[in-house]
Design a protein around this nucleic acid. Sequence first.
DNA 1: CTGTATCCTCATGGATACTG
DNA 2: CAGTATCCATGAGGATACAG
Lengths: 120, 120
Amino acid sequence: MRPIGAADATCQLRDVLDRVGDKWSVLVMALLGGGPRRYSELQRSIEGISQRMLTLTLRSLERDGLVERTVTPTSPPRVDYALTPVGETLSVEVSSLIRWAEEHREYVATSRLRYDVQTS
Amino acid sequence: MRPIGAADATCQLRDVLDRVGDKWSVLVMALLGGGPRRYSELQRSIEGISQRMLTLTLRSLERDGLVERTVTPTSPPRVDYALTPVGETLSVEVSSLIRWAEEHREYVATSRLRYDVQTS
DNA sequence: CTGTATCCTCATGGATACTG
DNA sequence: CAGTATCCATGAGGATACAG
């Protein structure tokens, strides 16, 4: 069996997983799954994200062809972000991951407590 | 609408997503989804993981109640790792994420090329 | 074989200030 | 409003050596 995550030319699983696994992409994708959003909406909706990271995250997602950026050159400018068709398919996965996290965070918290007690 | 990822006591989405989003957990979970594995099997199967990170990843997953560790005190010792029932449910999500990555890595690669060309 | 212990590097990402 | 530019701290994670 070929090692998983092998760094050869055909399998750049790592590349894609790294992007999905960064700190903010999952949350951004999930939000855009609910429809297009403006830059400021995203910033308000995502607790704790800095301007810098929101921009970097959106640029990466755009670069990967998952998000589309639309500028309306009014004054002040308006920029909307929306999922591309492929982005939609990823947002489905991502939403289901978030649902898992919500459904099991209590179990995880309890497990951690027990583990920490037993190993201390 | 309450911000997603809010850091209050009831919503520790961040906590769980951080664990899932680290560099190796996803791959470990996916492998264990195929059944119990020995420490050395995991190390061989995951391209590029260091001993340190494999151990840390397994400890975290165990702490979260997602993986169970079984020591057989032979000489040399044998240690098997298996998913817990809740771990199984996560490994399903994770496998489906990996499948997405495999199915779309070509699209992502192409998108990146185009983006880099256009913005250079 | 299955780890632990150190050391050290580098990239992630936060804070802040500034701009069209 | 929607960014960019800079600086900087932190910690994730690799390399290596050692141990039960």
